[in-house]
Design a protein around this nucleic acid. Structure first.
Lengths: 211, 211
DNA sequence: GTTTTCATGTAACCCGTTACATGATTCA
DNA sequence: TGAATCATGTAACGGGTTACATGAAAAC
């Protein structure tokens, strides 16, 4: 009950657990480090999410504790619960990483999807970047139109606020343009009108992730 | 029941109604125009808010319809409900606009407070701008530290995301610096270490609102 | 006269936080 | 041995959206 599946939390958890198994506490730290200060999750949402993913069979509790080089350090009772991705979980993650729809480029979601671009197919990356750019340009149009309509009756502070907001979005669009150009440079494939229809497209890992 | 008092909606509604009486539908448009695309409210939150402000006596339903130059246009039953600010509402608004605390400079709230700077005392404006700047600088410190700690094990996409986020915040800090400088230039008062302790401080309206 | 837009509202839900409760482990 | 941090969880609440229901006024 109280379902709680935002999509972003689920993706973030699955993505992180795909890299390496972890327990909840550590997961939360890595999560907030991954997303930067612009997005944070509390235990109150993380633990219920883990519980649910467990029920769905997407993750499982790790039983044994492998690396035991330095003698003891693990008593009879374990207080940590280490989670790992199951086969179903990996499949689910792949599905999430292959969705190139609004969920991937709206304000919520874009950050997380982008953070996992290292595990995302090159063509999907491109579609997400372009989707977000389109979305932002729509927003720019809307704001500019509204601004043109109401320019005269706005006081200088409101105007300043709008100007700053507009410039922020414009800046993100330029950023996206650079990323898109970079992606196209390193992987000129998957395009309706493009030559290079040979198989020169390695599903993931051409753009330069260096983990 | 289902209380619903975010502070930001309340302030926005009171602030807009202070400028001119309006009905809910129009209020929502002005609201979303005021806040730009980065913040929007639906009727599902606006109308309950209005109802509650009415119960609290901060706003009242307008009864008569003044400007009637063009003959008819108002039948026996009115379908629009025009709200206006009561005396209590004006007092409440002043209190909200005088609060120079976290509510005014956190992510939620700063935009709205800034949008009403035209109705805000000069010293309060300055304190809010400085509070926000401090807040953002704290955030920068946190992100930079986290980045320094984990730089090596981040793939290039995550790194790029963090870089962009960082630069966005740095940009806002520069913006705030300019605004603060501008405020100080036009109203060098209220400062512990400042000369000009004469009474050259007109409570509001020195910075240049031009509505 | 029918479609759009204006206009008001409500109920169900969603996603998340806060505050709390609890206990193990580490460090001074 | 006592405090700080690690670690796991839950219940209550909060603030908002979506989808729905309804009807008047304007535009075509």
């Amino acid at each position: 009950m109280t379902s709680n599946r935002s999509g972003v939390l689920e993706l973030a958890v699955l993505g992180l657990l795909h890299e390496t198994p972890m327990h909840g506490y550590e997961l939360r730290k890595r999560l907030n480090a991954l997303l930067g200060a612009f997005r944070a999750f509390s235990y109150g949402s993380l633990y219920p999410c883990l519980k649910q993913l467990l029920v769905l069979g997407l993750i499982a509790e790790e039983t044994d504790e492998p690396q035991d080089g330095s003698g003891r350090a693990r008593a009879g009772r374990r207080s940590k619960i280490v989670y790992r991705l199951t086969a179903d979980g990996k499949e689910r993650l792949q599905n999430l990483l292959t969705e190139a729809g609004p969920a991937a480029w709206e304000d919520d979601g874009f950050g997380v999807h982008f953070a996992f671009f290292g595990q995302t197919r090159a063509d999907i990356r491109l579609r997400i970047l372009e989707g977000r750019r389109t979305r932002l340009e729509e927003r720019l149009d809307g704001v500019r139109a509204a601004l043109a309509r109401t320019r005269e009756r706005l006081d200088s502070y409101t105007l300043e606020l709008h100007k700053h907001g507009l410039e922020s979005v414009e800046r993100e669009v330029r950023w996206l343009n650079e990323l898109i150009a970079s992606e196209r440079r390193s992987d000129p494939s998957g395009y309706p009108g493009s030559r290079h229809a040979d198989g020169t497209q390695h599903d993931a890992g051409s753009g330069g992730p260096g983990r």
